[in-house]
């Protein structure tokens, strides 16, 4: 059982100046779990997610990824990050590179994969996200939904063991949200461990194994989607859900 633990956080706290954004979060995420984090803006969802790969440095507490305490000084965070993909709200594709180069850069430079091998992986992944014909395009020539699908392919090219999604559909036009969620769904069904910060309640209900409700830096609800959506325990969860559903 303990071998299946992918992420463990222990009393994770994060302050920005005097503002306490995370007030002590302890939880465990196991292999192949799809966890959705919901909650009002400013509740610390994104900050929590960004602490998991140290884009944000926790103030105290620890984050343990597959047995490695990444908050320890001796941890090689670059190495840990190769195992965890991240998808951002604003895509963050590299605008000066073609779609293909966006995807192959990290495997070539970080993992030392050969160019042909990296390109094979990239073309394969582009096929999976339905954008094979866009390999030679530049990010500026793509729609938002296409950009986000490329960003997912770019993260997957490192063959990560888990994926972090930071509001992946929040910057998209409504008609493009579906295409990105479809890619994420198929990823979930393939058994990828995923942590998704999202406002897409439909996705959370349908795809996730677990839903966390966060408010004011704390996890107030941590249960199956069915229980969280239909039988929330905390009054704040109830009031939040009544506003968004």
């Amino acid at each position: 059982m303990t071998n299946d633990v992918v992420i463990q956080t222990v009393d994770l706290k994060k302050n920005f100046g005097t503002l306490e954004v995370l007030k002590g979060i302890s939880l465990t995420i196991t292999k192949q779990e799809v966890v959705c984090i919901i909650g009002p803006s400013g509740s610390g969802k994104s900050t929590f997610l960004r602490c998991l790969n140290l884009l944000e440095k926790p103030t105290s507490g620890s984050v343990i990824i597959e047995g490695t305490d990444i908050t320890s000084k001796h941890c090689d965070i670059d190495l840990v990050r190769t195992n965890m993909g991240m998808v951002f709200q604003n895509f963050n594709l590299f605008p000066h590179m073609s779609v293909l180069d966006n995807i192959t850069l990290a495997p070539i430079k970080v993992k030392g994969v050969t160019k042909t091998e990296a390109e094979d992986i990239a073309i394969n992944l582009l096929g999976k996200v339905g954008l094979k014909e866009k390999a030679k395009s530049y990010p500026g020539e793509l729609s938002g939904g296409q950009k986000q699908r490329v960003a997912i392919a770019r993260a997957l090219a490192m063959q990560p063991k888990l994926m972090l999604f930071d509001e992946p559909t929040s910057a998209l036009d409504p008609e493009m949200i579906g295409e990105v969620l479809d890619v994420m769904k198929s990823l979930a069904y393939e058994g990828m461990t995923m942590i998704v910060v999202s406002h897409e309640m439909g996705f959370a209900k349908e795809v996730s194994d677990r839903v966390l409700f966060m408010d004011e830096g704390l996890v107030l609800e941590d249960d199956t989607p069915n229980n969280v959506f239909n039988n929330p325990q905390n009054p704040r969860t109830k009031s939040f859900l009544s506003k968004v559903l």
Partner: peptide, 9 residues
Amino acid sequence: EAARSLGMT
């Protein structure tokens, strides 16, 4: 952030 999250130094 995107580059670092891919493991680049």
